[in-house]
Amino acid sequence: MSALLEVRRLAKQFGGLSAVEDVSFAVETGEIVGLIGPNGAGKTTLFEMASGFQRPTRGEIWFDGTRIDRLSTPAICARGLARTFQIVRPFGDMTVLDNVIVGAFMRAPSPKMARAHAATILAQVHLAGRCDQVARTLTLADRKRLEMAKALATGPKLVLLDEVMAGLTRVETDEIMEIVRALPRAGVTILMVEHNMHAVMGLSDRVIVIHHGRKIGEGSPAQIAENPAVVAAYLGGRDDADA
């Protein structure tokens, strides 16, 4: 079992409703994998389960050789799986640098080293110039970067990026794409949920498509673009019939 992250026949039900149904996939070390699907397809629920915020109803999640679907969120983070939130959650009272230091304390043994590590991460996401700004006052684009910086500061092997490009301009999106593209070289594998097709197709080595909680396609961006089931799902056709 060489995959960094492996999801096996995962299912999640809320009351009687299935949010995720029998989904399996794997992410290999060094990959950028895109997870796409219409709103309400179950992508965020998958992230919630992988990061320990919710327990799966059935199935297993393995990360780096350990089964993590019963672990707490901090324990999962300590093993090297970090996440961002779709609606960004900066620590509003703190400065940008302090926000990232919180994450850096995951691995740094001293405040001094945490500070140094946080500064490095901020440079990586092009936020170094805003170190002393209070996080609450950042623009959306900078908040998205901060969200990534906090997760990256915990020293993860894998980061789950939840729509870090949503709501950004084309130029801002391109900047974030550059940052994401550089991450595998720094030893960080990426699994990202993204609605921005330009970003997903441009960045991903592989794309997984979820619809109505089920996996309906997987392959290279080019294969996905031609997959009829995927096209149907996105055009909002009679997808219920084949779901």
């Binding site: 970090a82 959650r89 900066p90 620590f91 009272d93 703190m94 994450g103 995951m106």
Partner: peptide, 11 residues
């Protein structure tokens, strides 16, 4: 500031 965000950073 934010309990869930703190949780996600391993706290």
């Amino acid at each position: 500031n934010d309990q869930d965000a703190a949780l996600a950073l391993g706290i």
